[in-house]
Structures are given as C-alpha cells and as structure tokens.
Amino acid sequence: MPRKLWNIKGGNDISEFGAIMDECRKNCNYWFENSKVEFSRRQANVAAHTLAREAISLASPHVFDDVPFCISTLIFNEKV
C-alpha cells in the first residue's frame, strides 16, 4: 500500500517533492511497462490546466466519461 503522501505536511519541501516523485517512479515502473513522463509547453497542456482550475470549483472529485463542458471547444479544436 503506498503511503498517503498528501498527508505529509510542512517539513522540508524539497524532500517532500522528492518523496512524491520517488513514489511516482516506483509505481510507474511497477504497474506500467514503458510509460513515459514527458514535458509539454503550457500551450499544449491547456485541457489539463482548464480542468485543474475547474477542479477547485467542484465540491468533490469528478470523473468524466464524456467531454466536460469547460474543455469541449478545446478538445474539438485539438482534433485537427
């Protein structure tokens, strides 16, 4: 069972960052065969950014099986 990392509070921020990243790497290697973590410019990450902003205004976690309204135009535009 992975630790609930988000419960770690305060302390050294750098080690907190490192601890989360170590956990990410461990899980990623353990569960997935060759998943990569890649960098994109912000302009290429607008869908996730918009959702992250939307997240704060929602009362609870949401999973969307259909395109959420806030990114519908964007998803459409990024189809081409």
Binding site: L5, W6, F17, I20, M21, E23, C24, N27, C28, W31, F32, E33, S35, K36, V37, E38, F39, S40, R41, R42, A44, N45, A48, H49, A52
Partner: peptide, 29 residues
C-alpha cells in the same frame, strides 16, 4: 508532483497500461 502521482493512481485504477503522461512542469519531468 502530486498531480502526476494522482494521474498514475487513476490510470492504474482504470487498468490502462499503455498510457504516457504529459505535464508542463520541467522539474517533475
């Protein structure tokens, strides 16, 4: 970093194994 952590957890829950992750945070990548 927590964003990536949750993404990995979620993808695991969805039982998807062919997923790559993309972020705009250089330090994480």
């Amino acid at each position: 970093a927590l964003g990536l952590y949750h993404a990995i957890q979620w993808v695991r829950e969805l039982q998807l194994s062919n997923v790559d992750f993309e972020l705009d945070a250089k330090k994480v990548v």
